Amino acid sequence: MADLYIKSLHIIFIVTWFAGLFYIVRLFIYQREALDKPEPDRTILGDQLKIMSKRLWYIITWPSAIITLILGSIMVYQYPAMLELPFMHIKLTFVALLYIYHFLCQKLYSQLQNDEQRYSSTQLRIWNEISTLILISVVFIIVLKNEINWIKGTLGFMLVAIALMIGIRTYKRLRTKA
């Protein structure tokens, strides 16, 4: 029974971690756009977005990432045979990519807290979709578990990626016209 509680908590913290990752990059986009505003809007918006980012990042996103890792490690420790399943190797590769994404978001967070403008809002919008693509991949891997279905899921993943890129470009064009 304790195993089900650990699994449930693992899923809950995955959800809160992804919520944090999805929203933090959205805040990065707003912070970046605020840097282009004239004063006093630039300072007022920038300061408020920095506070929001800091609270989200350190109160929700980081703790969720750490607790997710701890709970996932407990499950692997309890059932080491899971590591013999081929789909788990693929899943754990995507999980590693997600942690790399998280650390890169930490770098973006630090830059924006210092008002550094290294990326455009369009580049950040594209960056925002990476966690979505990782989520889609992991869900397909965990639910489908076998290679043939995973390949179909990967093709679907690529189609979603293409659709997201088209959507971002379309949104940018519509926004530029308005």
Score class of each variant (00 low, 15 high):
Phe94Ile: 14
Ser8Arg: 00
Gln117Lys: 15
Phe13Trp: 10
Gly156Tyr: 01
Tyr58Arg: 13
Met165Arg: 03
Gly46Val: 05
Asp36Gln: 13
Ile29Arg: 07
Leu135Thr: 10
Arg26Met: 08
Gln113Asn: 09
Ala19Ser: 10
Ala178Tyr: 06
Ala81Leu: 07
Tyr101Thr: 01
Leu159Ala: 12
Leu135Gly: 06
Gly167Thr: 06
Leu9Asp: 10
Gln48Leu: 09
Tyr30Ala: 07
Pro80Ser: 04
Leu144Thr: 13
Asp47Val: 02
Ala81Asn: 08
Thr132Ala: 14
Val143Leu: 15
Gln113Ala: 04
Leu71Thr: 14
Met1Lys: 07
Val143Met: 13
Leu83Cys: 08
Ile74Asp: 06
Ile6Thr: 10
Ile168Phe: 03
Ser64Ala: 15
Arg42Ala: 07
Leu174Cys: 04
Leu155Ser: 08
Gln78Ile: 00
Ser8Met: 13
Trp150Arg: 07
Pro80Met: 00
Thr170Ser: 07
Thr170Asp: 08
Trp62Cys: 14
Val25Cys: 11
Lys91Thr: 07
Trp127Thr: 09
Ile14Met: 09
Ile134Asp: 09
Val160Leu: 13
Phe87Tyr: 15
Gln111Gly: 00
Thr122Asn: 15
Tyr77Thr: 13
Ile11Val: 12
Ile67Thr: 13
Asp41Ala: 05
Leu35Ala: 14
Leu104Pro: 08
Ile12Gly: 05
Arg55Tyr: 05
Leu69Ala: 15
Phe157Trp: 15
Ile166His: 05
Gly167His: 11
Tyr109Pro: 04
Leu112His: 02
Leu83Glu: 08
Met52Gly: 04
Arg55Trp: 08
Gln31Trp: 00
Thr61Phe: 06
Arg118Tyr: 03
Ile51Tyr: 12
Met158Pro: 00
Tyr23Ile: 08
Ile24Ala: 00
Leu159His: 01
Lys152Glu: 03
Ile66Ala: 15
Ser131His: 06
Gln123Ile: 00
Ser121Arg: 05
Tyr109Met: 02
Tyr58Met: 04
Met88Cys: 05
Leu108Lys: 13
Ala34Gln: 03
Val95Pro: 12
Lys7Ala: 14
Leu85Arg: 04
Ile134Leu: 15
Leu174Val: 13
Glu39Ser: 15
Leu49His: 03
Met158Gln: 05
Tyr109Leu: 11
Val160Met: 03
Leu133Gln: 01
Ile142Thr: 14
Ile11Lys: 02
Met1Ala: 07
Phe157Val: 02
Ala34Thr: 05
Leu21Thr: 03
Gly153Leu: 06
Ile44Trp: 10
Val138Ala: 01
Val15Gly: 14
Lys54Val: 02
Met82Tyr: 11
Lys54Ile: 01
Trp150Tyr: 09
Tyr23His: 07
Pro80Glu: 05
Trp17Pro: 09
Phe18His: 01
Thr16Cys: 08
Val143Thr: 15
Glu84Asn: 04
Ile168Pro: 00
Met88Gln: 02
Asp36Trp: 12
Ser8Cys: 06
